[in-house]
């Protein structure tokens, strides 16, 4: 590539990243200010940096339990989605069976179902079976859109593995479960990583269902934020600090899977 072209790319990327990061910077900036400074003066960086807003959140259980609740149901959902999606994706990628195409398409249609449509029936269903306001309720509800996505992603990765490997393993006397866990899963590790990343992401960012299905014990952080905004609409500093803290888990997850993501995206069909 010529030098002028790579310089152009650098300019484009710098501008785009600035566009992405400035709003986030503004939130971080606000979270380090006192409320008086936020509403009183306009400054590009905190004049008197304070950690008071973060202290409010990290010392109050009604705040920090929100993070714990969110993390619990997100992890449960990711594990559950992968556990059921792995064998299903294997079936779709290796065999033809009665109604396979219809089933695959039907699964994908669930990814197209607006959460708003399901909010009320979910509320009634989980209340009826006594799961309302539990972590597992939210984890199960999020399976609605995460399982189809996980099957879709994993199927793409599995189809990239030649079928001779399966056949050789069976001839060597491997049983299906042993072959699947010992040989096959390591082969598609990056695919599992990418699928887990997407499950984590869509479960972590979802609010409508997780808010509808919880009241106290499993209340997610995102819902805690909305309630506090409406109750004391002026505590901008704490609101900003809570927002910053919701960004952190995502940022950590991306940092850990960054090499998988680059490689995984490229290997798979996704």
């Amino acid at each position: 590539m010529t030098r002028r072209a790579s310089l152009g790319s650098a300019v484009v990327m710098t501008l785009y990243l600035l566009f992405l990061l400035v709003p986030i910077y503004w939130l971080v900036n606000m979270s380090l200010k006192t409320n008086a400074e936020i509403t009183g003066t306009f400054s590009l960086w905190p004049q008197n940096p304070t950690l008071r807003n973060f202290r409010v959140i990290l010392t109050d259980p009604s705040w920090y339990m929100g993070y714990v609740n969110s993390l619990i149901y997100v992890v449960m959902n990711t594990a559950l989605s992968l556990a059921v999606a792995l064998p299903a994706a294997y079936a779709f990628s290796r065999y033809r069976f009665l109604g396979d195409k219809h089933l695959f398409f039907w699964l994908l249609t669930n990814r197209m179902a607006p959460p708003a449509v399901f909010a009320l029936p979910f509320f009634q269903l989980y209340s009826a079976v006594g799961l309302f306001d539990t972590h597992i309720a939210v984890a199960l509800a999020h399976c609605l859109f995460n399982v189809p996505l996980a099957v879709w992603i994993l199927e793409g990765f599995m189809s990239g593995v030649p079928r001779e490997i399966d056949e050789t393993a069976y001839i060597d006397g491997y049983s299906f479960p042993r072959f699947f866990t010992r040989i096959f899963m390591p082969l598609i590790a990056s695919g599992i990583g990418v699928a887990a990343f997407f499950c984590f992401m869509f479960s972590w960012v979802e609010l409508l269902l997780s808010r509808t299905l919880t009241s106290v014990n499993a209340k997610p952080i995102a819902a805690t934020m909305t309630r506090t905004v409406s109750a004391s609409g002026l505590d901008w500093g704490v609101l900003a600090a809570a927002g910053v803290l919701t960004i952190l888990p995502g940022a950590l997850v991306i940092w850990f899977v960054r090499n998988y993501i680059a490689k995984g995206f490229a290997l798979g069909r996704v």
């Binding site: 992405l20 952080i221 927002g243 960004i247």
Partner: peptide, 17 residues
């Protein structure tokens, strides 16, 4: 990593930002 950052922010926080 920087580009993936907005994707992992809860949607109501995106709204708040």
């Amino acid at each position: 990593v920087l580009m993936a950052l907005p994707l992992l922010i809860p949607w109501n926080v995106v709204g708040t930002i």
